[in-house]
Amino acid sequence: MNNPVDRLTDGLDETQRQALGDLNALAHFLETDLGTEPETAGRDHLLTVLEQYLPGSPAIKRRQWTNWLRLAHSQSVLFEKSFWLAGLLVLLLGLSLSVIDGRDLLPLVFIVVAPLLAAVGVAYVFRPETRTLGELERLTATGAAELLYTRLALVLAFNLLISLLLLLLIWLEGPQVVLWRLTLIWLGPMLALTGLAFYATIRWNSLVGAILPLGLWGCLILLGWSEAVARATEGMTPAFWLLLIISRSDPLLIGASLACLVGLGLLGLAGRTAPGGEKSWS
């Protein structure tokens, strides 16, 4: 296609072409720009730099754990105060609910709310305003997937820490509760919801990433919550005993394990969706 005007307007509708009128002057004007030709030295330098990234290059070394820590530290600046404060608020809420006497039902609220915190936290951290990946990569040459997983690890680690502290409190109040089982039963939904939030945020956007896990968890709560509340409030089964039953239930344990696997699968899938520059987030 040598005609410069055709190079400009090819593909446009006939009405659009007519509305644009004579574009000869513009096309010839644009043609005068031959562009910046790279210098040979610049190309050699580029090649030297790129060779370090070739698969199998000795320059590629596995990332040391100290580097991961540095990367985590650099990413932590993306988490605004409100994120940490929200986590601490849930910690305090769970703490107060766990120690208030005569409020057997309240610890259940924590169980319901806690996994959501992680899911919403993921959607929050990956919201559009924090998309400075290109800038960071130019500075650090760090892969996009590494950045994503580092942020994710920060969110999960923080929420895991908070939740483990609270689960510990529940366990201290009632040693009959099997802590590791209760932890796994809690971890399953958290990982599944977080994985869903992460995948949906990377695949679509943070709004979908927040709504999907909220909706899913909301449905599950609607299905099971009313009966749990009825049993607890009618005195049939005190909330603490519900926790005890939950922590000893094999079907719940199996379900939570499956949820863990689903969550991990979604986290992996999101990572495979992300690299390669095919998605607009990159």
């Binding site: 580029l46 790129l50 990234y53 290109g134 130019r138 040459a141 690299p275 390669g276 520059g277």
Partner: peptide, 12 residues
């Protein structure tokens, strides 16, 4: 340079 690095580090 970043563009080339991306295609080199792409694992997809």
């Amino acid at each position: 340079q970043d563009t080339f690095i991306r295609i080199l580090t792409c694992r997809g």
